[in-house]
């Protein structure tokens, strides 16, 4: 049987589409299962074989609502993820500008060093941070989470902005300098407007990362500054069944950021794939 070029192209295209669907479904399956489980009873949630058809219940959502001030946790998540992102951008935009347009002998080394700090396990600095927080009376405050989230994500944010800024022709900045523009004017009037798409996608990714941060939220907060992630962790039960309730609270915790990501997916994809295809 002879296959023509057109048939080959069609076949390749169909295979690519099928693969993309399979991969997408694989990624989506845990989320689908979590949502499905949130509508089961605890007994149905651990049933073997797993149940696909069952009488749904909203009981788990009722329990979550009764047992916790979910709005308070959600508010803390919003404050810390957006606050942390603003703080990180305030620090990293000037830093990335300096590295992109005024590189020094050690710029690349510094960038690599900053990224390498992401490889250090967070628990390694838990006690020093905890003691600092206690010293400055910052335990269980959203303020400390904003600072920590910002510092934690600075390397990634800085690297992304550095790459975006490098795409801006230096000649434009040189021309502005000839016209007497100060560094502040260069950053605010030229670099930021030209790299606005990149800054937006970096900020979006930062919000997602900070929203999902668990380690510091759980370890530094109690009842005032806990985020949605720490609320999820509180539903794990060492003595009894809890999968359906954890699924319900996880669904509630994920929903805002999934909707947010869906609404801004164009910018997110642009940021994540930046530089991948020239």
């Amino acid at each position: 049987m002879i296959i023509t070029d057109k048939q080959k192209q069609t076949l390749t295209h169909n295979l690519a589409v099928a693969t993309a669907w399979i991969v997408a479904l694989l990624f989506f399956f845990p989320i689908f299962w979590m949502i499905l489980t949130s509508f089961k009873t605890e007994q149905q949630a651990i049933s073997i074989p797993p149940l696909l058809v069952f009488e749904p219940t909203l009981d788990n959502y009722r329990v979550v609502h009764e047992r916790s001030d979910i709005a308070g946790y959600a508010w803390n998540s919003i404050i810390t993820s957006f606050g942390g992102t603003v703080l990180a951008l305030l620090i990293s935009i000037p830093a990335a500008y300096a590295m992109a347009f005024r590189p020094g002998r050690y710029t690349k080394g510094i960038l690599l060093w900053m990224l390498s700090t992401k490889m250090m396990p967070a628990v390694g600095v838990l006690m020093p941070i905890y003691l600092l927080c206690k010293r400055f009376d910052l335990l269980d405050t959203t303020g400390v989470l904003i600072v920590i989230f910002a510092m934690m994500n600075l390397p990634i944010i800085m690297m992304m902005l550095f790459n975006f800024f490098r795409e801006i022709p230096k000649e434009i900045l040189e021309a502005s300098r000839m016209d007497g523009a100060s560094t502040l004017v260069e950053i605010t009037r030229i670099v930021m407007p030209l790299a606005w798409g990149g800054i937006a996608s970096t900020a979006l990714l930062s919000v997602v990362l900070m929203w999902n941060e668990a380690f510091w939220s759980i370890n530094l907060t109690a009842n005032n500054a806990g985020t949605l992630v720490s609320l999820v962790a509180s539903f794990s039960n060492p003595q009894g069944l809890f999968w359906a309730k954890v699924s319900a609270v996880s669904t509630l915790a994920c929903a805002p950021i999934v909707v947010f990501g869906w609404m801004t997916q164009k910018q997110l994809v642009q940021g994540l794939t930046f530089g991948a295809v020239k």
Partner: peptide
């Protein structure tokens, strides 16, 4: 650090 801590303290809530 002190400045950041002070800002954060202001944002935080105390029991």
């Amino acid at each position: 650090l002190l400045g950041t801590a002070a800002i954060a303290a202001g944002l935080g809530a105390a029991a």
